[in-house]
Write a protein that binds this DNA or RNA. Structure first.
Lengths: 180, 180, 180, 180
DNA sequence: TATGAATGAGAATTCATTCAT
DNA sequence: AATGAATGAATTCTCATTCAT
């Protein structure tokens, strides 16, 4: 029964992601439950309210991203390529949707902390890449992270679309001299 | 009386933009009317339903943007700087908000056509800039427009923030040679 | 239209009192609205939530009671009879119901103050009656008020039922000597 | 096993009384089960539905009261003091709560009969006390019982609070002559 | 037999829209 | 033409009860 419950929990999250993607972040709880093949009551047993469900999705995505960042560091990928790899990873995740969902309410402490942690990891990455010379130095690490986030949180973002290419490329080089 | 009506229409749109900005795209019709100093009935006299109001805002913004593009062309601004100027213009407009509003429902014909027209103007611009050599050639004009849109439709976008700088900068030059 | 709205407000309160009496304090808002011949929306326009409706009823009853106490004082009814008159007045009001309703949530400031004021008036009354010798002196004024409230807040309370008679009678005389 | 079951049954009833007292008669079945250290399923094994649980509590209290009345009669307590003793007994029981619970639904036959029996016992008591002259005769035995019930079914009722004193005192003596 | 997960009917509340004044 | 009252469908959430394990 524990296994069953876990399965249902997964189903709910999947159904929610599906419906949010299809119908926007306003998808009704009832519909999510139905899409998961469950009654509303079951949904509410797993997530005490709408926020809790959204939160689970947001926090889950952040945790996965954190794991990914750590894995890349552990693999000793050359610093200059880590950002590319992360963009590629994120392109496979529904970050645009998750961002929209997360903006609905103020972030609770847990999410804020996790976000800060992930941002910290990414800033470190940016800082070290700047040290190595693989990311230009006139952009603050914090801004690099913001750029990364913009690149990655777009509906239909792909790792090799124009924005990703221009930004990753742009980060790698010193700024062009301003045209006169 | 006609003047009165026009004034009311303006007030409603202003109030709507204000409330949408403040409270998100979910702001209630009643509140918008109140913020405009009118009753709901009057709001509905001007806009038969919520969509019509949103539509007016979206279409208005596109028309303004079209006018701006044309004005810049008429002014004979050096092609290489037009994009910068447009980004600067857009940074002063609530495009992030408008994009969010516009995504709520499928775009009706009028908006689709206007959007296509503006996109066309911007693509022409990109194409000519590529001809002049002020925009790199390995990015399709359509993609340049998409880039532009991403840069410009962010909450709090500024003409000189990191994304704007990196993208405008990146567009100007040929791609960096891939690191070996 | 203002007249209409006022009428509707009255109807809602009447319907609510009726349904609360019939079905207990759990009567559904939808049913109350229907019983008033209105849609739920209208009910909610008049009372922003369930509490507000209950509060209106409770506060209204307290205000009426305060008016009654004052009227009796103004009429210069002999002090010894005022309590009887008040019991008679209250017997005609649904105080048992109102008490049950009011106990559902903590009293907000307005009601607490009004309650305190009414209690104060009644205590004064008791104190003066004790001064005159028409109410026995070994019961604190506050307790007299509590007694009054118990007599009056019973379902089906009547001004001449056994409890009312025994209590009013008991209040009038000095305590019986305890049987040995 | 039977002993276990009995213990669980007791625990449920205790938990229910506790929660009803704490949170009002709306306490949820799930919470009651938890408070009893059991799962809902077990609660429902003992009591087929909410009513059955409430009924058990109400009937139990009536049975205890009946036992108390009989015990007092068997002890040959002077009639004039039996009412006092009963009030004292009841003050220790949650009769106010039980009354509120019992009013939620119509009483089923079993409870009605038991109630009638207890009322009968109390009426007999009243009648005999009137015969002895320890209770005044102008109040019908049925009304005496009603009085008793009102005294005893108040939240926080105590055997020596104002109402109890005034009523018990009032019952003992002939009515005061009406003031002229 | 005990457990707690699942169910769904029901309740409160919101808000776009209509309509009487 | 302007107003704001009325409407009711849609939504979130709760809780008694059932049932699989």
């Amino acid at each position: 029964m524990r296994a069953d419950a876990r399965r249902n929990r997964e189903r709910i999250i999947d159904a929610a992601l599906g419906l949010f993607a299809e119908r926007g972040p306003g998808a009704a709880m009832e519909e999510i439950a139905r899409a998961a093949g469950l009654g509303v009551g079951t949904l509410y047993r797993h997530f005490p309210d709408r926020r809790a469900l959204v939160e689970e999705i947001a926090v889950g995505a952040l945790q996965d991203l954190r794991a990914e960042v750590r894995a890349l560091e552990a693999l000793d990928v050359p610093r200059g390529q880590v950002l590319e790899r992360l963009v590629a990873y994120c392109a496979g995740q529904p970050f645009a949707l998750i961002k929209a969902l997360a903006e609905e309410d103020a972030a609770p402490a847990e999410r804020r902390e996790l976000q800060a942690e992930v941002d910290g990891l990414l800033e470190d990455l940016a800082r070290r890449a700047q040290g190595e010379g693989t990311v230009r130095r006139d952009i603050a690490p914090r801004e690099v992270v913001e750029l990364f986030s913009t690149v990655v949180c777009r509906p239909g973002a792909r790792a090799d679309d124009a924005l990703a290419r221009v930004v990753l490329d742009g980060l790698r080089r010193d700024p062009a001299p301003r045209s006169p």
